[in-house]
Amino acid sequence: MVLKKPVNVKNIKGSFESTVQGLEIMKYNYKVIKAYEIDKNEILSQKSIVFYPLRVFMKHDGETEKEHILECLSVVEKIEDTDYYFLTVEWLKKIYQTSEYEEFVEEEIYMSSALYKEPYEKGREEGIAEGLQEGETKTLARTTIKFLIKKFGIIPDDLKESIQKLDVPTLEIIIDNILEYESLDQIKKYIH
């Protein structure tokens, strides 16, 4: 399916052939569907819901861009599965400037889509896990520095900074062996 009319391509073929030394190796025939040549109302009359989000690319003779955008959104707004609304908005983003469509988007419908929620939720969960890990690392680094100060007294700032950059397993090793260290040089072997 070709969504937008290509600028530099004159003829889009419906087949592919590959030959090696005059022998036919592969031959594929396929139908080229040019979305930009389909009347968007045809899709509605056929009730081809799966193509509703692609209607933004289709012919919309007699409508302004604003009317076209509003009509495409209003059709998918009525569908129970909000993923269609989400996909329509995503396609609008690809072909129109933000100011041309954004004011018409119903954020509540858009954000209720599973396609919106899944990456958002995953990113949120990863962010929380990352934050917890970062917090654990900072706490262990502070604890390590406190123990080293108690054992050796003043610690150089560059060593403190290096300790704060260490990962959790390395910090745990240092803390576990703190009583065995006789000098700060033994700590420096963990700093790369």
Rank of each mutant, 00 (worst) to 15 (best):
K4N: 11
K4I: 15
E17Q: 01
V20P: 01
E24Y: 00
E24M: 13
M26D: 12
K31F: 03
K34V: 02
A35E: 13
Y36G: 00
I38L: 15
I38D: 13
D39V: 06
K40R: 14
K40L: 10
N41M: 12
I43S: 12
S45H: 09
K47P: 00
S48R: 14
L54K: 13
K59E: 15
K59D: 06
K59N: 00
D61A: 08
E63V: 07
T64K: 03
E67C: 04
E67S: 06
E71H: 09
L73M: 05
V75A: 02
F86S: 02
W91D: 12
W91Q: 13
K93E: 15
K94R: 11
T98S: 11
E103I: 08
E103D: 09
E108M: 05
S113I: 02
A114K: 12
Y116L: 04
G123L: 03
G123W: 08
E126R: 10
A129N: 11
A129G: 00
E136D: 04
T139N: 13
R142T: 15
I145S: 02
K146P: 00
F152V: 14
D157G: 02
L159Y: 12
L166I: 02
V168A: 03
P169D: 14
E172R: 15
I173V: 14
I174W: 07
D176Y: 08
N177Q: 15
L179C: 06
Y181A: 04
E182R: 15
L184G: 04
I187N: 01
I191L: 05
